[in-house]
Amino acid sequence: MKSVLIILLLVCLAALLVAVALDMPPLGEPSTPANASPLTRYVIANAVRDTGSPNRVAAVVADYRAYDTLGETTVLFTAVAAILALERGRKDEKSNG
């Protein structure tokens, strides 16, 4: 019974998502809203002048959105800190009790 409900849900969701996908702008065209946006054009045209880096992706990651990348490294750092804390906590528990 439960699996029938799950399959029904998944089929409905798949139909909805495929309908959305068919309705999206055609993929691979330079004229889609994402590819033709002024921001994209600005980055492609001016990244070398602004940052001195020919690789536009690196220019976006480490210059235009450097603050975002700082948050990203913080996420990675926090994950490691949490994992180490789990491990240390278990060792302390073992030695105390």
């Binding site: 921001l39 994209t40 980055v43 536009r56 976006v60």
Partner: peptide
């Protein structure tokens, strides 16, 4: 060129 923003 392909769009660099989604990749970043």
């Amino acid at each position: 060129p392909v769009n660099p923003l989604p990749q970043a």
